[in-house]
């Protein structure tokens, strides 16, 4: 057990160190790619609060990613807010959206929950697609600058990819830590218990609708943060951010990395983008490869890459323990 813990700590430290030091030596392309991976890692982690921890497969999570992104783009373009207030407002907008959609969606289970979230997500999509005066329709909102980070004592420009990378890194780490704390709390235990057996949870005195609603809102809120970061990264908020194919991304990432391990979806995001990056260098049809990777993972490694790795490591450690 102790050995497993120190191994885990070492891996986490190495990962953090890499994220802070690597960009110093990397070119602009790598920094941009890493920024996008970070943002999607947070998006996937927020989705997994519902999927891996609560047992709810949402197919409309992009709605909140998009709400955050559009709110950010709107605030920056029309009101020229600085970074922190704009980020705060985008987060609130996404959380409100999640609270409203969640209020209805959590009333259904399983496939019906997936369909309901899909429906609501696509309603948001058609809304941003049609409401040209507010959202720019199919063109989206474009042509804004990354706002300055006003820390009261100092104003920092986030224009350079490096500056924006470090800002995103800090925000995503904070977001991930908050989500992680959530999973370790009594609330997190109730979520995991609901994943296993919602009926039993209600028979020990838990109002499962309330807990699902809170989880849904928290997940939507964090997706909003990721969406806001992405809109600035992309210099654009477009309807594709809200489309159901965007909702499928965190699902794939979570499955790829492992939905039962906290950092699984983040690793899934990394794998997803690295694969996309390398495969698209050789061929346009990278979706075929994604599908060809997804299918065996679903069949043979349902715990995902990180889940499987951890299971192997545990087995190795146990075997060593027996040998001594």
């Amino acid at each position: 057990m102790e050995k497993g813990k120190s191994l885990k700590l070492a891996a986490l430290l190495a990962g953090a160190l890499f994220l802070f030091i690597f960009p110093h030596f990397a070119g602009v392309f790598a920094v941009l790619l890493l920024t996008e991976i970070l943002i999607f890692a947070l998006f996937a982690l927020s989705f997994n609060l519902l999927f891996g921890y609560t047992g709810l497969l949402s197919f409309g999570h992009a709605a909140f990613f998009g709400l955050g992104g559009y709110a950010m783009a709107f605030m920056v373009q029309h009101f020229h807010l600085s970074m922190l207030p704009a980020l705060a407002i985008s987060t609130i907008v996404a959380a409100l959206g999640a609270a409203i959609i969640g209020f209805f969606s959590i009333r259904r289970d399983e496939i019906y929950f997936a369909m309901l979230t899909l429906g609501f997500g696509m309603m948001i999509f058609t809304l941003v697609h049609q409401w040209r005066s507010l959202t720019g329709g199919s063109d989206g909102i474009t042509g804004f600058e990354v706002p300055v980070l006003d820390l009261l004592v100092k104003k920092l420009s986030l224009f350079s990819p490096w500056a924006y990378y470090y800002f995103s890194l800090v925000v995503c780490l904070l977001g991930a830590i908050l989500l992680w704390r959530l999973t370790l709390s009594p609330f997190g235990l109730i979520l995991r218990s609901m994943r296993e057996n919602p009926e039993r949870v209600s028979f020990v005195g838990i109002d499962i609708k309330l807990y699902r609603w809170i989880a849904f809102t928290a997940a939507g809120l964090m997706a909003g943060v990721a969406g806001a970061l992405f809109a600035l990264y992309d210099r654009m908020a477009s309807p594709s951010m809200v489309h159901w194919t965007m909702s499928a991304k965190p699902v794939l990432m979570a499955i790829l990395g492992g939905p039962r391990v906290f950092l699984g979806p983040a690793l899934g995001a990394l794998i997803f983008y690295l694969l996309e990056h390398f495969i698209t260098q050789y061929t346009q049809s990278w979706m075929i490869f994604l599908g060809a990777i997804l299918v065996p993972i679903v069949i043979f490694f349902p715990q995902g890459v990180l889940g499987t790795l951890i299971a192997w490591a545990q087995r190795l450690i146990r075997r060593e323990g027996h040998g001594e």
């Binding site: 999927f51 497969l57 399983e110 496939i111 997936a114 499928a248 699902v251 794939l252 499955i255 346009q284 049809s285 990278w286 979706m287 075929i288 994604l290 599908g291 060809a292 997804l294 299918v295 679903v298 069949i299 349902p302």
Partner: peptide, 24 residues
């Protein structure tokens, strides 16, 4: 016999493959 979401995801994998194969 496995969780319903895995079947959903598997068929999603088939979707990705077929869609791109058609393009190819």
């Amino acid at each position: 016999g496995r969780d319903i979401s895995f079947q959903l995801l598997l068929t999603f994998g088939i979707l990705l493959i077929l869609d791109d194969a058609v393009k190819l």
